[in-house]
Nucleic acid binder design. Sequence first.
DNA 1: GCCAACGTTGGC
DNA 2: GCCAACGTTGGC
Length: 179
Amino acid sequence: MGGAAEGRGAGAQSIDVGAISAEVAAGRRCWLMKSEPEVYGLDDLARDGQTSWEGVRNYQARNFMRDDMAVGDLVLFYHSNAQPPGVAGLARVCRAAYPDPAAFDPASPYFDPKSKPEAPAWLRVDLAYVGHLARFVPLEQLKADPELSGMLVIQRGQRLSVQPVSGPHLLRVLALSAG
DNA sequence: GCCAACGTTGGC
DNA sequence: GCCAACGTTGGC
């Protein structure tokens, strides 16, 4: 591997910013979701094409998925606990919230005995890969950008792994990644 | 590894 | 319902 693909996994795609802008202008909902790249990063999603977002164990994050997330929604894929942390790419919700089977599995690190199949406490969505940002946008750059003031991910102590993002903020991140 | 921020738990 | 203790997140 080399050239433009340096540092990206096999199958990495670029993002059609014009098409995304049109979607956002038409009212497409936007999100940011965090993953530790050593656990499951954007390269893994590019390889797999889609994935089930298991393991959300925070009520506010669950409620966002349950109440507000729909098929087609756009997702900034954020690498947390990374060096540096930041936005790596774009994904899309391809299945709306449904019970997270990991919560029922005693062998899973996400097992939660409070969650029963007849009354699931935890949900997951499925995400499809859209593309890698032209350039990774580190958290430091998000924090420094005046147009992104108010974005949740840059706020101190903000730990939510599923966050709503405004359309203009999502487009701004794409613009920053282009240069 | 440190630690600030936050969420959850459990005694009362 | 209060709140201290504890566990987790996640940047640094």
